[in-house]
Design a protein around this nucleic acid. Structure first.
Lengths: 114, 114
DNA sequence: ACAAGTACTTACTAAATGGTAAGTAACTGA
DNA sequence: TCAGTTACTTACCATTTAGTAAGTACTTGT
């Protein structure tokens, strides 16, 4: 990833430094916001529950996105050494702090698109 | 686009009806939020100004995204019949109403990622 | 006559993203 | 013995998204 020179006089915005771009890179995309949205209304959820709740997501995508969110510090994963496996997911404080943003999106959609 | 059956008891969320998904489909992606973000701080901008301001975007992407945003009712385009061409872009009220969301994203990034 | 300027479009290519289906591990209950 | 359960991973393929480069239109200034 190349770092580019900032040219303030010409009002250049360096994509890598633009907070909106960073936000979108981290929690944008097709599935991450939905996963967070669901975990906001369900304190704890198991893998299969998330899978069933989020219509259309595949197991591959779900585990990949959960891994990303865990790394980001938005979600915590707790696995129990039992058979069959049991793994719980919940939001961290960082994750919960996204609530106003997501409800803001919902409100905006209801007021402007539907 | 197929419409799926809603299963409330099983807590299914139909992606097409999830407001967060709708939001992301409409104003998510790599460029749209940045374009809006810049138009929030610059009332009126010409095509070339946007192109120079948003580092890394190509003219193709810029005109495509502006077209999408115009269709969405977030941006208005005003073109003057002069040569060389002059076209101005600005946010509509709908577009301006995204301000709190975008500043929220910025704040979240500063507080949680940087 | 010709380059410059502006706001694009087109054609082609590359990369990122997402989907499908199958496989895996280990134990339980029938 | 054998299907069922859960939380995944892997391999492969399709689709979407984005990037590059060139072209276009029309007029002004040199």
């Amino acid at each position: 990833m190349e770092i580019e020179v900032k040219k303030i006089k010409e009002k250049y915005i360096i994509a890598e430094e633009c907070p909106i771009t960073i936000f979108m890179e981290q929690i944008g995309g097709k599935w991450k916001p939905v996963i967070i949205w669901i975990l906001l209304s369900n304190e704890v959820m198991r893998f299969n529950e998330l899978d069933k709740t989020i219509k259309g997501i595949s197991q591959k995508m779900l585990s990949q996105q959960l891994k990303d969110l865990e790394q980001l510090g938005v979600v915590v994963r707790k696995s129990y050494p039992v058979i069959p496996p049991k793994v719980e997911y919940r939001l961290t404080e960082k994750g919960k702090s996204l609530a106003p943003l997501l409800t803001g999106m919902k409100t905006w959609v209801y007021e402007n698109l539907i």
